[in-house]
Write a protein that binds this DNA or RNA. Sequence first.
RNA 1: GCCGCUUUAGCUCAGUUGGUAGAGCAAAGGACUGAAAAUCCUUGUGUCCUCGGUUCAAUUCCGAGAGGCGGCA
Length: 315
Amino acid sequence: MLNIQSSIRNSYPLIFLFGPTGVGKTALLDTIFHDNYSIINADSIQIFRYLNIGSAKPDESMLSRIPHYLINIRDPYESFSVGDFVHLSDEALVDIRKQNRIPIVCGGTAYYFKHFYYGLPKSPKSSTEVRELIHQRVEKRGANWAYEELMRIDPPSAAKIHPSDIYRVTRALEVYESSGKPLSSYHVPSSPRKGLNPLIIGLQRDKKELHERIEARVDMMIQDGLIEEINSLLEMGATKEWPGMQGIGYREYFSLTETHSFTLSALRDLIIKNSQKYAKRQMTFFRSIDGVNWVHPNDLARIEELLNLYYFEYV
RNA sequence: GCCGCUUUAGCUCAGUUGGUAGAGCAAAGGACUGAAAAUCCUUGUGUCCUCGGUUCAAUUCCGAGAGGCGGCA
């Protein structure tokens, strides 16, 4: 249908496809994006092996039908970060283009898209050891110490980060600890990386519709054996500290058993609630990305039209 | 039928020694510098069940009624 190598702009087609959980990304891939497309997964939980049902990972048959990158590449106790995502995606991109196929970056992790699109800051990568060290200091010197320390070593970051945001305060301290330079000295890219020029498609449904789909999907997960999946992870030694266990569908199991309030229906309700809240957070992040073509997943005509307009520039 | 408790934000409940009220959850919006399905921020007018009484003033006290829960019959 088109010869990618003939690109007149010396850049290749690239598609971003994103949207909140349950909006229908996977189904859409299966209906229009097969044949000469390859997929780069941008979902921070589907990265992990064994987390199949809870992460709503595409099934085996789909994975064999359409080439997927960055799925099942880590064990659930291993760490993975945006940085890994960007590097591996860049490699995947080269590989896919070598095969004369069209790459689609598809998933729900907005943060991954942002850094893939804009490029990573030069700040040092996260280190579990350093983070642990910072944690110990916080334990020892009290809850207020971390933010006070941040104000001392990096006032600009302290001004931007809320004192209660332990996650970011810790990271800022971690950067200073491992590089000797404040986080604010590393600038954040403010424009997209050169040569990417993606067609950005955002999938959107109205809230009621999305919430109903999420509810139905959680019921389906339970029916498909979510509990069995969790049990087999527990047999592998899974704890709530495993990076993969922060995924919705798994974390609820731990929080409910911890408070001795685990029942199947409590689990179901909590997973639904947390998924719906997550969908909302995803949408506010996605909305902040420039140049998104928002479409309803059922509007195939509009999606075809977007693709044709986009490809027209390349042939 | 009698007795006791209860009725306040979408939900669970605080509270006002009488001067018209506030938490958690939910909801809405937002942030996002290598853990991001994470982490965090902002936003609370609601016949304080109804009617009557006392009072300058009642959601708050008194009486009656209605709903709910429990006990005794």
